[in-house]
Amino acid sequence: MAVIGSGVLRGMGVTFKTFLETYPWGRLILRTLRIPVTNGLFTIPYPETKQQHPERFRYFPFLVYDGTPDNLRCVACKICEQECPPQCIHIVMEKDEQGRPVKAHGRTLPKQFDIDMSICMSCRICVDVCPFDAIEMDNEYELSASDRYEHMIFDKHKLLKSADYFQKIKPTEAATVDARLAAKKPKA
């Protein structure tokens, strides 16, 4: 039969050990007593230091262009608009007066490409369904704004980012995407 109060004391032993673990001298004491030391987690003083995110960390989508901003990969096929679960993408294809699609660099292009970032839920389905690898997930998360309509609806110019940027933030994924695109090219 255990003495009443011994359970509480044992519990306090755990908290005391954790207390010691937070200081270098405490860790030294624990090591000399041959008690295993666990590594805790440390708070990050946020705006000054930023957390290192894994490569796959996703936030909001962006549009990829190669070289110059007019050479974007998107062909305005509207697949992502259709598949987006919360329906936050709006695309209008560039057309001339007769209603025929305008082509640049051998493909059609969007006249308007809006994503309502206040509705987007970062699910990555648009990236999965895009057959042209034209849309990718960004890891930029400091996007707070004071106006829901003016600042949170991202138009084409706000969404466009270069392929080099994509390579910088997600090197592994960009490498597979580039390999896939290179494999496609000779056929076209």
């Binding site: 255990a2 009443i4 109060g5 011994s6 359970g7 509480v8 044992r10 519990g11 032993g13 755990v14 908290t15 050990k17 295993p36 666990t38």
Partner: peptide, 20 residues
């Protein structure tokens, strides 16, 4: 490493008279 955390967590709670 998880079982060691569980041991510690149990030492803190399972036999704690107040919890019981």
């Amino acid at each position: 490493a998880f079982p060691r955390f569980l041991d510690e967590f149990e030492a803190l709670l399972t036999e704690n008279e107040i919890v019981q």
